[in-house]
Amino acid sequence: MEQSDQISILLVEDDAAARANIAAILTGAGMAVEQAEDGAVGLTRAGSGTHDVVILDRMLPSLSGIDIVKRMRGAGVGAPVLMLSALGRSEHRVEGLESGVDDYLAKPFEPDELVARVRALWRRASRRNPDPVLLFGDLECHVKARTVWRQGRHLALSPKEFELFLYLMHHAGEVVTREMLLRHVWKLSFDPQTNVVDVNVGRLRRKLEEGFDGPVLETVWGTGYRLIAAAPAVAATGRAGAASGG
Rank of each mutant, 00 (worst) to 15 (best):
Y225Q: 03
L10H: 05
E174H: 08
S4Q: 12
L155P: 10
G241S: 08
A20Q: 11
V185P: 00
S4K: 11
V197G: 02
A156R: 15
S62N: 14
E174V: 04
K207P: 05
P61C: 01
E174T: 04
G173F: 06
R150E: 06
H51M: 05
L155T: 09
A233K: 12
G65D: 11
F212K: 03
L135A: 10
G214R: 13
D15M: 04
A116M: 07
S85R: 02
A145G: 05
C141S: 11
P159H: 07
F212R: 06
V220C: 09
Q193S: 07
T237G: 04
L204N: 04
H51D: 08
S48M: 10
L166S: 10
Q151F: 03
P132Y: 04
R58V: 09
D67S: 11
A243S: 10
G96W: 09
N200F: 09
P192N: 01
L26D: 05
R123H: 11
G47S: 14
G137E: 08
P159S: 03
R146S: 15
G78F: 00
H154S: 14
E110N: 13
K207D: 07
E210A: 14
E209L: 08
E209C: 06
W221D: 09
P130H: 06
R73E: 06
G96I: 06
